[in-house]
Design a protein around this nucleic acid. Structure first.
Length: 940
RNA sequence: GCCGGGAUGGUGGAAUAGGCUUACACGGACGCCUCAAAAGCGUCUGCCCGAAAGGGCAUGCGGGUUCGAGUCCCGCUCCCGGCACCA
């Protein structure tokens, strides 16, 4: 083998050498306008800060014990290639990376082994850093942090306090400091709910009212309490039969005091502002559906126990409301429930119970025992019971029965509906089961033979004294009836959301402590900013207290609850030293990732979360109507709703309070696809080690036994893990990067195929050979000018690759570089004027080998800031153009004509062509179409 | 069921604005180099008929619009992802 061939060993040496060089020279440090990361005037870096900026970010990883596999860095490499390109194209580029390091796996490991989660997590982070460094990612390493760093979570706590100390002013449509609310109450500008004067209330009463408006508030909410695990579970951790997925313990629906975030206050803005974002349409649709804004009306139905307010999206069908249904948990159910069944109550309505009270109690018990999954399972017969009372339909005075049924959800709308079986399928089903009247109020089209009709049509049967909707289309009917309801005091137009407030407490150790203490009244008090961070105390046992699995009447006690000298604290909060009790829940995993885009901007700032000037420079709005935000955010589609919605919410609160100029965190979002890998299974269905499977006669075998092949996720349990470390060892990091980028478009999921990596390796070897003599190691390029054909190809490639780079089409960019390189390979000598642009264009993808080649081409500095090649427009134009000639839709010939030939000339040339003439056979074409620069089409 | 995305050679993919289908790569075949192998290099490689020249057929299926459709329209099939009685 020639001594200077580009092998994996040589690649490895070059790579570590350049990684060191970049670190030593701080090559990828991005200067801030102000603060510790700013460059002094006149220094070389100061010029950078005057350039247009580009802020690109990846969704940061949770450092798991398994380390990175080849799927993880796909997005990181893509943003690295993009930002390296942008840096060469004249931008001041910020591309940071950090770690989302609080999380359950380290805590569970700690429960089992006693190993402190911080130790496990920090070791994992160290490993991740090494793996990422090996890939040559051009991060500004001064800006890296982990969410577990007290310097970081100090500011997570600070933001919590901002939210805690705010309320949402629905008139101004923004968050405002809670002190301004209190001032409104105190001045009388805002009336106290019960009509008393503010200063007649006790301090506790005042605080309770104010606390009820905070954007972060404590509330009793129903949760999945699992005494056997000592913790509250997410819905997805509960099996359909109401047991815990882990441990199979019983789970109880129980109301517990939890911290909540009032994200519903922002529902409108979170939905509306999606329009201004450059995000994939499916993600915007998912967020809109999640928020689930629906417009309709609230209508009050009077009863003896007070009126029942229902929410409906179809107020136009109110004349067809033949009964009401409340959720079993609805607060009015108790007072509504009659003493005895009214005369003539059908047996089916009573559930076979002697009195309404018994029927309601039995039905409620049945509903509460059913799990969420069971209750909402599809295609089960409608159930419910009559409460023994009636309501009055306000539009026509009709007396209609009131039921409870579990298909009505307490948490949505008002927890009560008017049932309109004629126009709603669920109501129709229910009406059939209970033999309730059905009135059509929208005329279905002729020939309609279905049950409920939910479509468009004229209103019918919708007339009463003083109001008629008959003949109106749905939209007009809605408007008319809402106006009438409002004018007559029966209701009003209303909007509801599917979105619910965000449950923000966890009974865990390994999370951010809340900066909250409770005083002797039991009400929460904010820990002052100058006492932040509230650090996690050391504990001996990381598990929550567990109980008898069947004892529903227990309360969670988080691990922090046992750190008694931490929990019981004496503080001077301005009124002398007093005893307080700390909040012992911790924040959820989302907290740290809700605002990290801001901290990268000013990671060392100890006075502010981020300085205004730095935030405005990197993330501020760029034009009228621009929300601002990160210029490019890349991550998996699995975060389409929760992470992205929570981060947007926090960002908007900080924006409202005047801390930041951008109103959205991420201006542009791209979801990268997943790298999948083949899973091979033996006859029993167990995964076989993918690396040991051999292909034979079109099938696959492992240890001689046939195995089946399917596509799946990469993971330990599927025995198909391939690590970037292995790829770097076998081919070098540059080859790995080029391969990942050439596999296909970033957004698309695709299977990993190790044997195809060699294609990228050969490509880099050929580039190397075009510049370096493999026998001597000397640079072999010549200074003689390139021939015209090479030059034209070069400039066509420059032009196309620039476009590809700008829109992250890395796969096609690489294909064009390969074409250019293949052309150079065929030349007797490689001209410098082609080799240098090729190396520059290659450098975003294969930065180490490109730096090395650049050095060997005689340059002394990094190419990271070399101007990216620009195509010469003169060389993009050819002298001649080849036109394909279609005859009746089939390509039958080709002609070459001058590039500036007019249509008549092209047409004449086409008809004169020998092959074309043969097909035309002397006939007179009916039509000849010339598309300039494209093709000729002849119709016979 | 609803919502979203997709289907192009043996494989991953390309075709950015309705204009030459299959760029680039993997795999495969043959050749060069070599005592040999590996590596490297070169040529060929959508399918069918044909000795060749050439012809026919091809972007999941069936229609349509158009001089011209992978791309637009209508109707299906299959695959992937998300949601779950939301009034």
């Amino acid at each position: 083998m020639p001594p200077h061939r580009y092998t994996a060993a040589l690649a490895g040496r070059i790579e570590s050498c350049w990684q060191d060089w970049w670190t030593e020279h701080g090559t990828f440090h991005a200067p801030n306008p102000v603060g510790p990361l700013a460059e002094a005037d006149g220094s070389p870096g100061a010029e950078l800060a005057k350039r247009p900026k580009l802020y690109a970010m990846d969704m940061f990883p949770y450092p798991s014990g398994a380390g990175l596999h080849v799927g993880h860095p796909l997005g990181y490499i893509a943003t690295d290639c993009y930002t390296r390109f942008k840096r060469m194209a004249g931008f001041n580029v910020l591309h940071p990376m950090g770690f989302d390091a609080f999380g359950l796996p380290a805590e569970q490991y700690a429960v089992h082994t006693g190993q402190h989660p911080r130790k496990t997590t920090e070791e994992n982070i160290t490993r991740y850093r090494a793996q990422l460094r090996r890939l040559g990612l051009a991060y500004d390493d001064r800006r890296s942090f982990a969410t577990i760093d007290p310097d970081y979570y100090r500011w997570t706590q600070w933001i919590f306090l901002q939210i805690f100390n705010s309320w949402y002013d629905s008139e101004q449509r923004k968050a405002r400091p809670i002190a301004e609310l209190e001032a409104e109450y105190a001045s009388g500008a805002r009336p106290v709910p019960d009509g008393r004067a503010w200063d007649q209330l006790t301090r506790v009463e005042q605080r309770e009212i104010v606390d009820g408006h905070r954007l972060a508030y404590a509330a009793e909410v129903p949760v999945n309490w699992c005494p056997g695990l000592g913790t509250v579970l997410a819905n997805e951790e509960v099996t359909p039969d109401g047991r815990s997925e882990r441990g199979n313990f019983p789970v109880f629906r129980k109301s517990l005091k939890q911290w909540m975030m009032r994200i519903t206050a922002y529902a409108d803005r979170l939905a509306d502002d999606l329009d201004g974002l450059d995000w994939p349409e499916p993600v915007r649709i998912m967020q809109r559906n999640w928020i689930g804004r629906s417009e309709g009306a609230s209508i009050d139905f009077p009863t003896d126990a007070g009126s029942i307010r229902v929410f409906t999206t179809r107020p136009d069908t109110v004349f067809g409301a033949t009964y009401l249904v409340l959720a079993p948990e609805h607060p009015l159910v108790d007072s509504l429930t009659g003493q005895a069944w009214p005369a003539d109550t059908p047996l089916t309505w009573t559930g076979g119970h002697a009195s309404p009270g018994e029927a309601v109690a039995a039905y409620r018990l049945q509903a509460s025992m059913a799990s969420e999954a069971e209750r909402t399972s599809e295609s089960r017969e409608k159930s419910g019971v009559f409460v023994g009372a009636h309501a009055v339909n306000p539009v026509n005075g009709a007396k209609i029965p009131v039921f409870i049924a579990d298909y009505v959800l307490a948490g949505y709308g008002t927890g009560a509906i008017m049932a309109v079986p004629g126009q709603d399928e669920r109501d129709w089903e229910f009406a059939e089961v209970f033999d309730l009247p059905i009135v059509r109020t929208v005329r279905p089209p002729d020939g309609f033979d279905g049950k409920a009709y939910t479509g468009e049509g004229p209103a019918i049967n919708s007339w009463a004294e003083g109001v008629s909707l008959d003949g109106l289309r749905v939209a007009d009917a809605k408007r008319t009836i809402i106006d009438w309801l409002a004018a007559n005091g029966h209701g009003e137009g209303a909007v509801t959301y599917r979105l619910r407030d965000w449950l923000f407490s966890r009974q865990r150790y390994w999370g951010e402590p809340f900066p909250i203490v409770f005083d002797e009244t039991g009400l929460p008090v904010a820990v002052p900013e100058d006492m932040l961070p509230v650090e996690l105390p050391e504990v001996d046992d990381f598990s929550p207290k567990t109980y008898d699995p069947d004892d529903e009447h227990t309360e969670p006690e988080p691990p922090l609850g046992r750190a008694s000298e931490w929990v019981e604290v004496t503080l001077d909060l301005g009124d002398g030293p007093k005893k307080y009790r700390r909040e012992t829940n911790t924040m959820p995993n989302w907290a740290g990732s809700c605002w990290y885009e801001l901290r990268y901007l000013d990671p060392t700032n100890s006075d502010e979360v981020v300085s205004a000037e730095n935030e405005r420079y990197w993330m501020g709005p760029q034009s009228e109507g621009d929300p601002g935000g990160v210029d490019l955010y890349v991550g998996g589609v699995e975060h389409a709703v929760l992470h992205l919605l929570y981060a947007r919410f926090w960002h908007k609160v900080l924006h409202d309070l005047g801390h930041i100029s951008s109103s959205e965190p991420f201006r542009k979002l791209i979801n990268q696809g997943m790298i999948q890998a083949y899973v091979f299974r033996d006859s029993r269905g167990f995964p076989a080690p993918a690396a040991e499977v051999v292909e034979q006669d079109g099938g696959y075998t492992w240890q001689g036994e046939p195995v089946t092949r399917e596509l799946g996720k990469i993971g330990k349990s599927l025995k198909n893990v391939v690590t970037p470390d292995a790829m770097c060892a076998e081919y070098g990091a540059d080859t790995f990067r080029v391969y990942e980028m050439s596999m296909g478009p970033l957004e698309v999921s695709r299977p990993w195929e190790t044997r195809a990596v060699v294609g990228s390796y050969r490509f880099l070897q050929r580039v190397w050979r075009n510049v370096v003599d493999e026998r001597t190691g000397e640079c072999g390029v010549v200074d003689a000018p390139a021939d015209e054909e090479t030059l034209r190809l070069l400039h066509r490639v420059i032009d196309a690759v620039r476009g590809d780079m700008d829109s992250l089409r890395h796969n096609t960019a690489i294909a064009k570089l390969i074409e250019l390189n293949n052309r150079l390979t065929q030349l007797p000598d490689v001209p410098r004027e082609a080799a240098e642009p090729l190396v520059l264009m290659l450098s975003p993808f294969a930065p180490h080998v490109a730096e090395e080649l650049w050095r060997r081409l005689g340059h002394s500095d990094t190419l990271a800031y070399e101007p990216y090649p620009v195509a010469d427009p003169e060389l993009l134009k050819g002298d001649t153009v080849v036109y394909p000639v279609q005859i009746n839709g089939k390509v039958r010939g080709r002609i070459e004509v001058a590039a500036d030939a007019d249509n008549d000339t092209v047409q004449a040339a086409a008809l004169a062509d020998e092959k074309v003439a043969e097909f035309v056979g002397g006939r007179n074409p009916r039509k000849v179409i010339v598309v300039p620069g494209r093709m000729v089409s002849i119709v016979l």
